[in-house]
Write a protein that binds this DNA or RNA. Structure first.
Lengths: 207, 207, 207, 207
DNA sequence: TATGAATGAGCCTTCATTCAT
DNA sequence: CATGAATGAAGGCTCATTCAT
């Protein structure tokens, strides 16, 4: 490599390469965790899945548990951004709920491994210091949906005996999907979101 | 007491005591697994939870993994019996679905620990030989619900774009409950089932 | 049972029954030890082999290790008696050696399990206090053979470079038999003893 | 050193070091097994004997049982090579048998611990998949000796009632040696082999 | 950066033996 | 004599992580 380019660009480049590899490690871990479970996965499984060596792996991760945190950030951050964007659009309650359902289902589709991992292993990181951040983000996401429900009710468009129960029913329909959803299945993730919304919205519709 | 009758009752009694203790072990295990997770639970945790010693524990279980099987049977068997009884009653589609929802929610309420454990750890027993039995029972339960949906549609009472998606939406609402349900919460499990049915049944109702 | 006979005969009878059962336990243990090895055999294996229960077994044995001692006494005592009897007969060296070889081979044939067990597991009881007794008996048996060899040499009938090596060669031929001998084999144990003697005696014969 | 050549030798070197240490582990295990017995030897005994720690030990072995296989290969492979070489020399029956006896006794002398271990513990690996390989090698070794006996008989030099019994007598003399042989004893292993051959060859000689 | 040998705590399980009934 | 539940020490093995090279 030429000495001229070593200072600036190279450091940029090496940092980028570092982060690319790190992301590749996280995704590989998500894949393995999703298929065997977190505890049943050994560092050697990750070594095999990443093509790195045991020691090399630790250049990219702090430890096995950190991967769980990283895996979660991987899908929750973009999901929350989408939800905030939808909220900012100030749509009518029905299309807002549909947009949120689609975003969530799209997230499940895109980050299926990551979502699956989190779904099964969140208790593992429950005691971790970063758990509160994750918890806050999840709460915020749920609050955005809850707000839409409330807006619909206030506008006389939605009705339900208990808003929280309605919210949890809505979330349950979609969040249960990682347990059965298959990317190449008969029904696409977008159609699933649509059909769930059809049922749920008619279910809470006034009239 | 005549010598003839001594063997019978005594053996009966000791067998009963054995099974009672075994059930107590399984329930204790379910409680601990539900709170710490299966992998994070050590045999010593179970020793502490049961009051037995390490070796004594193994009189009642074949191994740690067997507990997972036993825990599942604990709640799935009565649930399936209830579902079959409901099916045998030959109710109208709407009350049939409500009865099934109630049974499922009641099951979650009663066997909360067991359901929670299964929900998180079923993959651990996926490879086990007894897994196929469990799988079959679960399939049968789902089929019973699916049949109700089909009957409703055939009778012109229900409508949905895809029966399987509707089924999974229904199951998702309820099966997601172990993730948030608290026995002493504001809304009872019966009310939860009722509200979910209100939404879902209106959501798929014709008219 | 009539009260009259309880005093004398009954105690005799019960003691005999006790010893019969004890012997049955020892033989069953020898059979299992011979086939699976001492360490690999569990008390439960013996429970199964004897038809007794765990606790009941301990009425007949002091412990697992004691069985090893008992098993050895089972074959060594009669063997030594035979050897002493042969020695007392004051035969010529050749027939004396043949008689001893036959006695040893007969012993292997009769107490095959016991001999096999001892052959593999004698080190287990090496530290035991009763080991010295066993050792002494074995020494005495070997000494009897050694004496015959010496008598033969003194009489100008046998020749060998080293008496101990000759003795060990002779013992090796026969003692190695438990490793390959099968009771229903083509060649009987008596014929084996005979052929070994044919070879060995010609091998050390003067002229 | 040119970068190109660094990979090769270095890997060679580390592989060699690995194998050297592995052999050291196997020999240490043989020593301990020979003195205390396989079952009575704990992993901690091996830890102490090797200077490694528990986990480090498992870099070199697959498990305790694997050591037994490795220990056997350690002495059987060179023995079989020697036997094949002797066979290839096409010696007269008498010197051929002497050469084989010497090779076997030399093997016992050199790999005393390993032979002792195998002698006592072969049943432990009887069920192992690699057992058939070992069995085959042993059979081949015995067959080589058997062939010599047959050649001798065909040439009118040897006589015996049954070739297999003669073979087993010959093997027994030598194979029994690990039970009593001591390296620093009065008679060397070469002399032992010689004296055994003197007796056995005269024993089966024609004339 | 990369390697992989080494660590050592900790896990699940087995098993000979005891003892209240 | 018989039972079998209970004991508890000990064993083989795994695995996340470290660190000298």
């Amino acid at each position: 490599m030429a000495p001229v380019s070593t200072t600036g660009p190279v450091r940029e480049g090496s940092r980028r390469r570092y982060e690319e590899r790190r992301d590749a490690v996280i995704d590989a871990a998500a894949r393995v965790f999703a298929s065997k479970g977190y505890d049943a996965t050994t560092i050697d499984d990750l070594v095999e899945a990443t093509g790195l060596q045991r020691g090399g792996l630790y250049h990219y991760i702090g430890g096995k548990k950190d991967l769980l945190i990283a895996i979660h950030e991987r899908f929750l951050t973009p999901l929350l951004e989408q939800a905030r964007a939808i909220e900012a659009e100030d749509l009518e309650p029905e299309p807002a709920l549909r947009a949120l359902a689609y975003a969530l289902m799209d997230n499940i589709h895109r980050y299926r491994d990551q979502v699956t991992v989190f779904f099964h292993e969140w208790r593992t990181i429950e005691g971790d210091e970063r758990w509160s951040d994750i918890r806050r983000e999840r709460r915020e996401f749920e609050q955005i949906i809850s707000n839409v429900l409330e807006r619909g009710r206030a506008a006389g468009r939605f009705r339900f005996a208990d808003r929280r129960i309605a919210l949890l029913g809505f979330l349950g329909m979609i969040n249960y999907a990682p347990q059965w959803y298959e990317p190449d299945g008969r029904v696409s993730h977008a159609e699933i979101a649509e059909q769930f919304c059809d049922i749920f919205l008619r279910g809470i519709a006034v009239d």
